[in-house]
């Protein structure tokens, strides 16, 4: 299994570090060729506008759309969640979102950096006995989810970890936490 990390802008090296620790030997994805070769993809946090423009600049937008439509297993965190959504509320004009998870998200919905926070998140995965340390940095807020979406975790009634088919999106940053359970779980999914 070849795991890729979208390496255009943002916290891609932190994701690679966790994946390395789990023995996954991740590769950086910056080109359509690299994307074509991976069996699994992580879309990191960063600035979704910047990543969106770089997807266009590097000719990755259409190939990524096709891979996601074809069921490529994907984990999107923060900006990655925005890219996986079907709708970005009050989005930036021309903002890319690929609709792999049927949800509407609001960028920076929790506020500016002063409102960024850490909080324990209870995740509905069998066998998990403790909360996950959620780190929310200018995070997106999930405003609504479609019928096909499984909400795996909520914080104060708002979904923060959502799954539809092989696509998973979190509004927090598992790569910043000293806890690799989400990455481990992602690698174990069929």
């Amino acid at each position: 299994m070849k795991v890729g990390v979208l390496a255009l802008q943002g916290a891609f090296e932190l994701h690679e570090r966790v994946l390395h620790r789990l023995g996954a030997a991740p590769v950086q994805v910056r080109t359509p060729q690299a994307l074509a070769e991976v069996d699994r993809l992580v879309i990191p946090g960063g600035e979704s506008t910047a990543i969106s423009k770089l997807l266009d600049a590097n000719g990755l937008a259409d190939p990524l759309d096709e891979r996601l439509a074809g069921g490529l297993p994907v984990l999107g965190t923060c900006a990655g969640m925005i890219l996986l959504a079907t709708e970005v509320v009050d989005g930036y004009p021309g903002q890319r979102c690929f609709g792999a998870v049927d949800m509407a998200v609001r960028r920076n919905g929790y506020g500016r950096q002063a409102d960024s926070f850490g909080a324990p998140v209870e995740v509905a995965i069998d066998g998990w006995e403790s909360a996950f340390p959620g780190v929310f940095i200018r995070a997106p807020v999930v405003e609504s989810t479609g019928a096909e979406v499984e909400v795996m975790a909520e914080l104060d009634g708002v979904p923060v970890l959502c799954r539809q088919g092989s696509a998973v999106a979190s509004s927090f940053h598992p790569e910043l936490a000293d806890d690799d359970r989400i990455h481990r779980w992602f690698l174990e999914q069929e």
Partner: peptide, 24 residues
């Protein structure tokens, strides 16, 4: 998660975290 007690803003992790997001 054990070291987190409810919502915490302004922690070192949260502050350094934004710098991580600006990389590249």
């Amino acid at each position: 998660a054990e070291s987190m007690t409810g919502r915490e803003t302004g922690t070192t992790l949260v502050k350094r975290g934004l710098a991580e997001m600006l990389k590249g």
